[in-house]
Design a protein around this nucleic acid. Structure first.
Lengths: 208, 208, 208, 208
DNA sequence: CATGAATGAGGTTTCATTCAT
DNA sequence: GATGAATGAAACCTCATTCAT
């Protein structure tokens, strides 16, 4: 909706402008990567002047970090709520989580931000630290609990899953990376990946 | 092993020096990423002068591409051979493949190169095209055959796997990325990931 | 004179600055030649920063070409007008042309640019092609007509002149080159050269 | 004979090699200009190693200067002899000189060196000084005497010629420069230029 | 607030020159 | 003597950032 190539008309309100810059940044960072993105391109894409970017973000790195934050924070709230639900079956919970991820990340412009996190975060150790502490490790804790609950109910197919809860994210990561590198040549069936994972993680309580 | 009659005119220590530059390049590219790696740093790391790098590689991009090639090409030969074996059970074959990957990539310095491929390749579309054609799509073909054979033998656990053979690489990709971003904070149990995958893909022929 | 509505978006002092850069470029290119002139020297000479040069000219070569164009284009307009005059005697016309060249080129800073054209143009084949097509061959055509008209009026001294109209430029070229190489040691009497040429080309109609 | 593009077989004798380097230098300097000629190209063209050039010439500049010297010195000897002849008519003498120049310079590879002198000498003030003192001013003296002698015999057409003896070289300079810049597009009739000059300088003693 | 002209640090690449073999 | 691998100074050009308007 807002990531055409055309230069949009000047946004007015201050918060709107901040958000226009972030939108433009996703586009440009996605296309070029952090190092090759020019602030001037982001400004033009946002329909504002180059100097204006610096009224909203102190420097290029902060802009990138804000971008990541703007994408990740809303996700966390949802996740928190759903993963803690204990009155639904683990498979149902996980199905819901995957649906949410599919809808709110993979199908939205946010998938670009997730890709940028994956490809650029190793060069921003402080971002990595921040998100590990605040998001990843908390997410893994919730997942571990979910898997343990599934195991207790006899629904966990492989004990190995308990040792690598990170793999639950594999369909997301693989989908994002595959599309970044090879979408031009060959698509990846993300839904099948989710289904495959649900089948891999869970079985009905009778072991079938 | 790499001491054949050299292709070009460079004398004696030449191939060793080329190697030294590539080794230095892994280190520096890994630490800084392609864009932030300075040729001068690579040269210093290799213990040579800045200009010397250009005697072996025409420019920074070629150096990077050669680096990727040097890591990937040997892998392909092995993979080809093993995946085509038809007289072993699919699970055994896959186990061997995972072992090979673990030994030759994840446990070696090559894991850094694989990470660089994943994180930088989207900015080198021609590398992506080359490796998709020559490696990835061929690998997927072999995997598809393997999975179909497993299915024919009643050993494939989920039909969904057939639609996303890419997911077979998930343990490798996840391991590499996790370690790049979060190894400092929390390890990932790569072996458990492989086991989980084998359990997910295959069941004994009687469905157990 | 150069204060029309400017083509691009550069505001107020912009055309002045472009001019200042071109002026500085004449000085530095003249002193050092194209290859040995450093952009930084030109910038310093113009009283601006190195990067500023690149706001006005995309690269060093373009700067050089613009420099040549800025000197040559105004000349052409004049020349066109005068050489086509058919109601004055050829000798008078040629006298006027030589006067114009003397005033507007040899006595002005433009003589440096003409020298640069002569000394550097062989390394810019596209400049040579452009100026041959647009200036030199057109100038020669006009000169040929002039000489033929003189011949028809019985005023051409030597038929050989018709075969090498290029020699009409000899006083200019010789003067520019002599001064570039030997002005320090010995002057060249440019006016005598022009007079010699007029005497060589033309005689009164009665053959005297 | 010796300016093909192919890499010749190794010359052996020391003087031969010096001369091979000079031959190669003409070719390469002509094609690229002083600044853009690479020592390595000259060496390859001469069929020797890069370092070998430095056994014969201390640096690039010296090589260039030696090149010019090798072309100019032999010319001087001839010129001296002919111009001083007083028992032939000035026009005959000048005709001979022009013939010599045509044969030994314009028709030979030396024309490239003359061009290089013209185009590069302004950036080598010491070369200019040397040749002005030793060649140009001496040549002009001889020419002045010749013209005065012609005048005394009533054979000088225009008194202006006495004031700009430099113009006697105009056909040479114009021919060399024209060919350097525009030979691809349009030729210059050098012989007509010489004839035009002889007609311009001299008349028969009776004024015809 | 907004702008974009101006700046100069920084990185890539070239190539004259050296020197160990 | 001859070589060419190695070097690093030097120059082009880019772009994040500043600041006068």
């Amino acid at each position: 909706m807002s990531n055409e190539i055309s230069h949009r008309k000047r946004p007015k309100g201050s918060e709107e402008k901040r958000s226009a810059i972030l939108d433009a940044a996703v586009t440009v960072f996605s296309r070029k990567g952090f190092a090759n993105a020019r602030i001037e391109d982001i400004a033009r894409q946002a329909g504002i002047g180059k100097g204006t970017v610096y009224l909203y973000f102190p420097d290029k790195e902060s802009l990138f970090k804000s971008l990541v934050a703007s994408a990740v924070e809303p996700i966390l709230e949802h996740a928190d709520r759903f993963l803690s639900e204990e009155d639904t079956s683990p498979r149902e919970t996980m199905t819901t989580v995957y649906d949410m991820i599919d809808t709110h990340i993979l199908q939205s412009e946010k998938r670009h931000i997730i890709r940028l996190m994956i490809t650029e975060m190793s060069y921003f150790p402080d971002i990595a630290a921040y998100y590990h502490t605040n998001i990843v490790s908390r997410g893994l804790d919730l997942l571990r609990k979910l898997l343990i609950r599934a195991d207790a109910r006899g629904e966990l197919r492989s004990q190995h899953a308990l040792k690598v809860p990170q793999m639950v994210f594999a369909p997301v990561v693989m989908s994002v990376i595959w599309n970044a590198l090879f979408a031009r040549f060959e698509s990846i069936d993300t839904h099948a990946a989710f289904q495959f994972y649900l089948d891999s993680l869970f079985q009905s309580a009778d072991g079938a």
